[in-house]
Amino acid sequence: MFDWLQHFADWLIYSVFGIGAESHLGVALNFFVYDTLKILILLFVIVFIMGIVNTYFPVERLKDYLNRKKLYGLEYFFSSVFGAITPFCSCSSVPLFIGFVQGGIPLGVTFSFLITSPLVNEVAVAMFIGMFGLKATLIYIVSGILLGTIGGWLLGKFNLEPLLSDWVKQILHNKMQQAEFLEEKRTFYQRLPEITNGAWDIVKGVLVYVIIGIAIGAAMHGYVPENFFNAYLGGGEWWTVPLAVLVAVPMYANAAGIVPVIQVFVAKGVPLGTAIAFMMATVGLSIPEATLLKKVMSLKLIAIFFGVVTLCIMLSGFVFNILL
């Protein structure tokens, strides 16, 4: 699919710049140009498609749907799927949380959404396709959605309502009249410019992370010895997964920057499952997110939320390492 891009990179580096195909620099630059362009194209396409999906399935529609239907447990799954297709913006997570709670949606179902939303997002998916291929991406998406489903269901089993902030509890008690869900009536053609602009904005926003990530990745490719991590992380010791996850939870990295680095880890001997668990913990949970959530829930609830999700990520890391 990207052969033409490889030809372009070959032509640019070897013919236009005249850097030899045998030199280390030539190979590294070629790799860098090819990877960066490929990722940017993928990123734009994926974000664009998600933009279309999203304009027809806004989150209000999910709320409305969950409210009206009896789903016999499937609501966790739906909520998680919606979390995956909704573009993630950390600043929206609090309004979404309140909106769900206000709409009478159970806390556990809300958590399903909250878990999957940062975990499976359009940027992470595009980066994954570019760096690991379609199969690994599908595994990532499916496991992210399952993780949200199970995590939310587990959290729903606890009695967590008393642990919300006081003002959120008040909202719960005097539920306001439900705003009608208004269907947008604009045609596809009218929506197109804003979808395109939105896609450009996201690509522009992560551009610098993509470049830094790929540059670090390219440099590591050259300098980290083959099988370097085998000695530490690749041996398959049981504790490598929890360690990778625990290191990653407080870290906050953009998916765009972290995936190229993880790809090098995998190339140098870290099992894919451990790498995916690391990635999930990095993008799914972070200190900044905890700070935002502090506005709507007590520290204890944040701790329970993070604890359950961390355990789920560790478990999925083990499962991947067995399956893959």
């Binding site: 806004p58 989150v59 209000e60 709320k63 600043c91 929206s92 609090v94 309004p95 979404l96 309140i98 909106g99 769900f100 206000q102 003002w167 909202i171 306001m176 705003a179 506005k295």
Partner: peptide, 13 residues
């Protein structure tokens, strides 16, 4: 202010 925003019943900003 998030509390003010929520009075408008919006979920996406």
């Amino acid at each position: 202010d998030i509390m003010e925003i929520m009075k408008f019943n919006v979920m996406t900003t």
